[in-house]
């Protein structure tokens, strides 16, 4: 029940629904909780509802930051 997965919106459907895809699996989800859902948005799906969008630029920025925080090339003793 607490499982939430990131999926990509591949088709917008009538009545606040959309087709979302992850790893080739497609699922109909509700996008009524999103402001302006758009094709190719990455979203976090929870019990059949998209709760929020995942911002790819922020994801990249987080990866860059944690790469910078990580010790260079060393392995823990």
């Amino acid at each position: 029940m607490c499982l939430a997965i990131p999926m990509r919106l591949v088709e917008l459907l009538p009545q606040g629904m959309a087709l979302a895809e992850h790893d080739g699996v497609r699922k109909e989800v509700s996008v009524v909780l999103l402001k302006e859902p758009a094709l190719d948005d990455y979203v976090i799906i929870h019990v059949g509802f998209a709760l929020s969008k995942v911002d790819p630029r922020e994801a990249r920025a987080t990866l860059d930051l944690l790469t910078e925080m990580a010790a260079p090339g060393t392995r823990p003793a």
Binding site: P6, P56, A59, M69, A70, A71, T74, R75, P76
Partner: peptide, 19 residues
């Protein structure tokens, strides 16, 4: 984009743990 794979990178995890 494969967010999930990148956020599971083993080498980066080791280095973060070292930090």
């Amino acid at each position: 984009m494969r967010f999930v794979d990148k956020f599971r990178d083993r080498d980066l995890a080791r280095r973060l743990a070292y930090t």
